[in-house]
Design a protein around this nucleic acid. Structure first.
Lengths: 216, 216
DNA sequence: CCCGTAGCCTACTCAGAAGTAGGTTTCGGG
DNA sequence: CCCGAAACCTACTTCTGAGTAGGCTACGGG
């Protein structure tokens, strides 16, 4: 409907169409979920006929996987751009968290398709997700390891670093999910909650301690 | 197939059949997801014909909702049973976490259907989930509030208690999901990770501090 | 000016799964 | 012993939505 109204857009090169299709797919998948999203609706939203999708992006599974790959790449890039290596560990974590939540806030559709949908579908999709999560965990592990290196740490504590990184990444994903359903909370606030929880712990918070970013 | 082999089981009262159907449904939903689970397979696993399901539990959506309600009730009961009110706050949290992870470990299928599936389907299902999560958050909030009451806390910190409870519940859900994919880690270990993360925070952990349960 | 190829569409096929019609058997009470 | 209702089944119908066959049309190079 949207396209016909403006006197059929001219023929466009393949890459442009692929982008339009992926944009439409992310949107539709995030609105209805993988199964309830129909190829017909995606083609409609993209302003393209169904066979084009099959010609360019393949079957429904392929299309979905392509969405995940693209959005995951964007997310990781956003986080990496936010973390500046010269800062102290807590500030790095803080900036990483803020970049992460900013991405989720700005790209709700992406996050939905990325996390909620992909997690719940089995098979090839979760692998894409696993790969991204693995990259995120590696990043956080490195950060914590640097932080740990500055203090004197015994072996067992070092060993669990990666596990803690996994927990943190999980907490972030989960809190982001929660945030989707409570959009009125500002991004900075959500980020600071997680930062406090993760850096200070309830034990300290309950005693009135609070972590605050040191101004640059 | 399973039933015919043993010379058709006698007619059974409605409640028994309903339980069998729900058991089968939880299993099948957790294996294939809501959409890929077919009523035919559920009826087959339950050892009952499809019209029986419709007669007793209604349509597919109703059946799924019934599964969530039942399993959510069991989970909350398990947690509530684990938390003993006379203990100090950190020990209460510890026991709550352990009960939670024990449930997830023992009832993987339940957790899958409960969390992964329900979260990813929109509509009526997420409401069931929301209700359960709300109960969990209330429980944790109360626990933290008690903990906070023992120390002198300013207003802003109190206000965020519920938010922190939400984050903790989210972290638990998320870590449980992670655990599904890493079953080799023992339950106690997973629980202690979350306990440490949440009670001590990275800030302390990095300095070598560790939370350990005080023996009773 | 013409033709090959890349962009693009309409209009189908077909499988799978939800949900149902309508009948048959067993059981308990009168 | 009989009959009504509850337990239970086989064998459909129906519809949705993935995937395709087969062709038209514009553009760029020769």
């Amino acid at each position: 409907m949207s396209v016909d109204e403006q006197r059929r857009v001219k023929r466009l090169p393949r890459e442009v169409r692929e982008r339009q299709i992926l944009d439409a797919a992310v949107r539709v998948f995030s609105e209805h979920g993988y199964h309830n999203a129909s190829m017909d609706e995606i083609s409609d939203v993209a302003g393209v006929s169904k066979p084009m999708i099959y010609a360019y992006l393949g079957h429904k599974e392929d299309l979905f996987a392509a969405c995940i790959r693209r959005e995951a790449g964007l997310l990781m890039a956003a986080i990496a751009a936010g973390v500046r290596a010269e800062l102290p560990p807590d500030m790095q974590l803080w900036h990483g968290l803020r970049a992460f939540f900013r991405f989720v806030g700005d790209q709700r559709a992406s996050w939905r398709v990325l996390h909620r949908q992909a997690t719940s579908q089995g098979g090839p999709f979760s692998e894409e997700l696993l790969a991204m999560r693995a990259r995120a965990i590696t990043l956080v592990t490195a950060l914590l390891a640097r932080s740990a290196a500055e203090s004197d740490l015994d072996d067992s504590a070092v060993k669990s670093t990666e596990a803690l990184a996994a927990a943190l990444v999980g907490a972030g994903e989960s809190l982001a999910d929660w945030w989707l359903d409570h959009p009125s909370v500002p991004e900075k606030v959500v980020a600071s909650w997680l930062m406090n929880l993760v850096w200070m712990g309830f034990g300290d918070l309950v005693e009135g301690a609070v972590w605050t970013p040191t101004p640059e």
